[in-house]
C-alpha cells in the first residue's frame, strides 16, 4: 500500500511538474499588441509552440530573421532575443515594413506560400477566442 501511495505521489508530482513546464511554454496565446497605439482589431491569435509543431518549424530564424545593412538575409543568424518592434517600427522605414505589415507579410506570406494556416483577417484577429483551438486551424 505504502509503495503504491509513494508512487501515486510521485506520479502526481511529476504531472504537476510537467504541467508547470507546459504552462511555461504556453505563455503566449496572442501576438503581443503592446507596441501598437490604438489597435483596431483584437491581437492575432498565436500559440507559438503549437504553431511550430503543426508547421514543422525547427529553426528560429524562419520567422525571427536578421538582415544585414545591405538588406541581405543572414542565414545563420536569428533574432529571437530581440523584440520585433526593435527593427520594425510602427511605420515603414525605407523598404523595411512597419510592425503591422511585417507581421502580416511574415505570417500571411508564409501561409499563402505553404497554402496552410490562416490568411483572412478574422482568422487571426478573432473577436471571440475559441476555447481550445490551435493556431494551425483554418
Amino acid at each position: 500500500m505504502k509503495k503504491a501511495a509513494v508512487s501515486l505521489i510521485l506520479i502526481l508530482a511529476g504531472c504537476a511538474l510537467l504541467m508547470a513546464a507546459a504552462a511555461a511554454q504556453e505563455d503566449m496565446v496572442v501576438v503581443d499588441p503592446g507596441p501598437f497605439e490604438n489597435p483596431q482589431r483584437p491581437p492575432s491569435t498565436f500559440r507559438h509552440e503549437e504553431h511550430n509543431l503543426a508547421a514543422d518549424i525547427w529553426e528560429c530564424n524562419v520567422c525571427h530573421h536578421v538582415y544585414d545593412e545591405e538588406g541581405n538575409l543572414l542565414d545563420d543568424e536569428s533574432s529571437e532575443d530581440m523584440r520585433c518592434v526593435d527593427c520594425h517600427f510602427l511605420e515603414d522605414t525605407g523598404t523595411q515594413p512597419g510592425l503591422m505589415k511585417a507581421f502580416h507579410l511574415n505570417c500571411k506570406g508564409c501561409h499563402i506560400k505553404e497554402a496552410k494556416g490562416p490568411v483572412m483577417c478574422g482568422e487571426c484577429h478573432r473577436w471571440r477566442q475559441p476555447a481550445a483551438d490551435g493556431p494551425g486551424a483554418g
Binding site: 483577417c121 478574422g122 478573432r126 473577436w127
Partner: peptide
C-alpha cells in the same frame, strides 16, 4: 458580417 465574424467566417469573407 465578416467584420463581426458572425455566421461562418471564412465563407463570409
Amino acid at each position: 458580417l465578416a467584420y463581426h465574424q458572425w455566421f461562418g467566417y471564412p465563407v463570409m469573407f
